[in-house]
């Protein structure tokens, strides 16, 4: 039992829990969607005074920020209380492909080539994270949702816009991985 908890959790178990999170929020009268919090944060920072898109009653979205706070705490708990060795169990083919791009054998959850303290404050490392974040925040709002709002909630509700968005997510991800990555790394 302890090994089951401390080791990596299987995909089917994860999928069951994630859909449960969506249903729990529906029964609380809310919708599962994480990226709208970034809009709320702009609004709290006062963006509504200058830009109409952020001029809405952000207090109605506080529940979602609390949900995010819980997600941060959940990450902390997973790391400090529910893991022994957290080296990702990815495919040997992925490891081989990434080695060609200069990434070493994984030693934890994230690659040190991108997320070590030295790398996030190198110019290239910083720009990669900043640009990646910018694309995620811009694209999610342009498309009206992210993985939670479109891929999980939207497709569960059989919404065509969500299906188009998810196809877009994959077109963008495949171009980045297979065309742009070999130029960057």
């Amino acid at each position: 039992m302890l090994d089951f908890i401390l080791g990596p959790w299987s995909w089917w178990f994860s999928g069951i829990i994630i859909s449960s999170v969506m249903f729990i929020l529906l029964f609380f009268g809310k919708a599962f969607g994480v990226s709208s919090n970034l809009r709320t944060m702009c609004s709290i920072a006062g963006a509504g005074k200058r830009v109409p898109f952020f001029d809405f009653d952000w207090k109605s979205q506080v529940w979602n920020l609390v949900f995010l706070g819980g997600a941060i705490i959940g990450g902390f708990i997973a790391k400090h209380f529910l893991s022994n060795d957290d080296t990702v169990q990815i495919s040997v083919n992925t490891i081989a492909d990434l080695k060609k791009l200069g990434f070493q054998q994984p030693t934890g959850m994230q690659p040190m080539e991108l997320f070590s303290f030295e790398n996030i404050f190198s110019l290239k490392g910083f720009l990669i994270l900043a640009l990646g974040g910018f694309f995620v925040g811009f694209g999610a709002r342009y498309a009206g949702g992210c993985t939670s709002g479109h891929a999980i909630s939207g497709i569960s509700n059989l919404q065509l816009p969500s299906l188009i968005s998810v196809v877009g997510f994959f077109i963008g991800g495949l171009i980045m991985t297979h065309v742009i990555f070999p130029l960057l790394f």
Binding site: A71, I72, G133, F135, V136, C146, G173
Partner: peptide
């Protein structure tokens, strides 16, 4: 919007939910 999001998802390895979970991690 989807394609731009996909660029960011592959580059940073994070969609909005995991961004926050990783901070806690």
């Amino acid at each position: 919007g989807g394609i731009i999001f996909g660029f960011g998802w592959a580059l940073s390895g994070a969609c909005p939910g995991p961004m926050f979970v990783n901070i806690g991690y």
